[in-house]
Amino acid sequence: MKVFVLIIFLLPSLVNADNLDINVNEGFLGAKWLSSQKEVEAALGKPNGYYRINKNRTLLFYGKSVSLLISRDRFRAVSIGGSLSEALAEYPNTINTKYEISNLTINGKPFFEQNFKAVEEALEIELGSPSYNISVGTDEVTINMKFSGIGGYRSEDVTKYQLRELSFAYQL
């Protein structure tokens, strides 16, 4: 009986430990906007790699699909998918595999390689007419999306567009 009660009390903490649901207005999976690089690494773990853009800007790579921009030691932007994923797809990955795109959700809904309408529902933001490139914003972030599809330019058929790249950047 004691073991059963202990499992019930631990269950909520175990569920949250692997929660990969993104809240774009707060940051990325526990790393809050404007956190220092040290705080980001404490929240997400050691990145797979680093790319120093210049003396004030660094990219942190997680999994094969996620990069975080640290600018002046503050977390400012996230990029998911796109050319980063394509470039790293063939490389072996032994750490941070939990950050693969297929594991990530927004508001509890999958978003990557989903059609236009499904992405709109996950973000809970009206995206307007379907297109290959969409930019929207909230009070906290600017969200840029790139879709691929077969519908032709400005096709109204939302099932023809699939999300290939998502980035969001904190607005000052």
Rank of each mutant, 00 (worst) to 15 (best):
residue 138 T to G: 04
residue 119 V to Q: 02
residue 75 F to L: 07
residue 105 T to I: 06
residue 64 K to A: 10
residue 146 K to C: 00
residue 17 A to D: 02
residue 24 V to F: 05
residue 2 K to P: 06
residue 88 L to Y: 08
residue 170 Y to P: 00
residue 145 M to G: 02
residue 102 S to G: 13
residue 39 E to P: 02
residue 102 S to K: 15
residue 80 I to E: 04
residue 54 N to C: 13
residue 137 G to D: 07
residue 169 A to T: 14
residue 139 D to H: 03
residue 92 P to G: 09
residue 149 G to E: 05
residue 110 P to W: 06
residue 145 M to L: 15
residue 1 M to G: 13
residue 51 Y to M: 13
residue 51 Y to G: 04
residue 5 V to L: 15
residue 5 V to R: 11
residue 106 I to R: 05
residue 152 G to M: 07
residue 100 E to I: 10
residue 30 G to P: 03
residue 34 L to C: 00
residue 134 I to Q: 04
residue 119 V to C: 06
residue 18 D to W: 08
residue 8 I to D: 03
residue 100 E to R: 15
residue 155 S to K: 05
residue 1 M to I: 08
residue 171 Q to V: 15
residue 39 E to R: 08
residue 157 D to S: 02
residue 22 I to K: 01
residue 122 A to Q: 03
residue 66 V to D: 01
residue 64 K to C: 05
residue 64 K to V: 07
residue 141 V to K: 04
residue 19 N to T: 05
residue 143 I to M: 10
residue 43 A to Q: 10
residue 171 Q to W: 00
residue 98 K to H: 11
residue 124 E to C: 06
residue 49 G to E: 02
residue 148 S to H: 05
residue 105 T to F: 06
residue 167 S to H: 02
residue 22 I to W: 01
residue 5 V to S: 11
residue 54 N to H: 12
residue 75 F to G: 03
residue 50 Y to M: 09
residue 153 Y to I: 11
residue 28 F to I: 06
residue 97 T to M: 11
residue 17 A to W: 08
residue 129 S to C: 01
residue 22 I to F: 02
residue 164 R to F: 00
residue 132 Y to E: 11
residue 5 V to D: 10
residue 66 V to P: 01
residue 20 L to T: 05
residue 79 S to D: 09
residue 139 D to C: 01
residue 138 T to H: 05
residue 68 L to Q: 03
residue 73 D to S: 07
residue 5 V to E: 14
residue 93 N to W: 00
residue 74 R to H: 08
residue 20 L to A: 07
residue 50 Y to P: 03
residue 113 E to N: 13
residue 99 Y to I: 08
residue 145 M to A: 05
residue 135 S to V: 15
residue 154 R to L: 14
residue 32 K to S: 13
residue 132 Y to V: 07
residue 57 R to Q: 15
residue 70 I to A: 01
residue 12 P to I: 14
residue 30 G to D: 04
residue 31 A to H: 02
residue 125 I to L: 15
residue 149 G to M: 08
residue 155 S to L: 06
residue 13 S to C: 12
residue 122 A to W: 02
residue 94 T to I: 11
residue 19 N to W: 00
residue 84 L to G: 03
residue 164 R to V: 07
residue 25 N to M: 00
residue 113 E to R: 12
residue 92 P to H: 10
residue 27 G to A: 04
residue 163 L to V: 07
residue 49 G to R: 07
residue 149 G to F: 01
residue 139 D to F: 01
residue 114 Q to R: 14
residue 12 P to L: 14
residue 123 L to M: 09
residue 43 A to W: 03
residue 170 Y to V: 03
residue 15 V to F: 10
residue 84 L to C: 01
residue 95 I to L: 12
residue 81 G to W: 04
residue 17 A to Y: 13
residue 156 E to H: 00
residue 38 K to F: 06
residue 99 Y to A: 08
residue 114 Q to C: 09
residue 71 S to Y: 06
residue 77 A to Q: 09
residue 48 N to H: 10
